[in-house]
């Protein structure tokens, strides 16, 4: 790989870490009580990224599809679990729902991009597959979190309305589809917002990275466009899947609203 960029040494990293003093200072002055979480978050970020750097360095030398797919699967599983961890309520099976939705959405979208759009040879080339999958997963995870959370809250706040309709003879879909629609809409908002202002307000991280690494800005922009479409499709599929699965769980085949399945997390 060409290296027409300035490599960063550990000393320079330490210098950058000094910037966290701004956050800690602010937290201390305003008594935000964030000092400890900020330090932990900063530490986690540094350790996780350094580790993943080593993992990626090793990974990019691999040529075994199974190893690469296994890593991809682990990433997907972590995304699926993380998506649920941010919701306020749980029900039995919610982790499976999330895993299944993340897996199906990211596999479809990333697979299509690798084989159909970018046409990477071989299709599992980790230099392409892993970062692109990561981008899709990160955004799908956010969408799923938001969508699931909104769906469950929507059913709780609109419980009387849903049950009034059920009591009048509505099917579970007739009674609850406004909540399904709303949850999918809310889950999609961040993706749509970020597409709206992309390049105007925000310079996306991946594109910035490519440019810093010396790529032609036009090429970087093209990659970014592909990625954004992947993200939008992945998030939409993931949210759609997870909300429909949750719908099937929380509205029983007997057309009952089963809020008793929900448990609040602390």
């Amino acid at each position: 790989m060409e290296t027409d960029y300035i490599a960063i040494s550990y000393g320079q990293l330490a210098l950058a870490a000094l910037l966290i003093v701004v956050n800690v200072g602010l937290s201390a002055t305003l008594r935000l009580g964030l000092g400890q979480s900020l330090l932990i978050a900063a530490l986690r970020m540094v350790v996780q990224l350094l580790l993943i750097g080593f993992v990626l360095e090793w990974l990019f030398t691999q040529d075994n599809a199974l190893i690469i797919l296994a890593i991809a699967l682990v990433m997907t599983a972590i995304a699926g679990i993380a998506a649920v961890n941010r919701t306020q309520r749980r029900f039995a099976g919610i982790y499976w729902h999330s895993l299944l939705s993340v897996l199906a959405a990211s596999a479809l979208v990333t697979g299509f991009a690798m084989v159909g759009i970018i046409r990477v040879q071989p299709w599992y080339d980790p230099q392409y597959l892993i970062p692109m999958l990561g981008m899709v997963l990160g955004n799908t995870l956010n969408g799923i979190s938001l969508g699931l959370d909104r769906f469950m809250e929507g059913l709780i706040t609109q419980r009387d309305q849903v049950e009034t309709l059920l009591a009048l003879g509505a099917t579970r879909w007739e009674a609850a589809h406004p909540q399904v629609r709303n949850a999918i809409r809310v889950g999609m908002i961040p993706t749509i917002n970020s597409m709206m202002v992309m390049g105007l307000v925000s310079l996306p991280g991946m594109m910035t990275g490519q440019i810093l690494a010396g790529a032609n800005p036009i090429d970087a922009v093209r990659y970014q466009i592909v990625i954004m479409f992947m993200i939008a499709a992945g998030a939409a599929l993931g949210i759609f899947g997870v909300v429909l699965l949750a719908y099937r769980r929380l509205l029983s085949p007997d057309h009952q609203l089963r809020l008793d399945y929900l448990e609040e997390t602390q």
Binding site: L166, A167, G169, A170, T171, H255
Partner: peptide
């Protein structure tokens, strides 16, 4: 049984009007 009727059909015949009336 309600399942034999299908729940929407059953509820259109055996209809509950809850105490707290909800307007759509």
């Amino acid at each position: 049984t309600p399942s034999e009727w299908g729940l929407p059909t059953y509820r259109s015949q055996v209809m509950m009007v809850p105490q707290r009336a909800i307007a759509l």
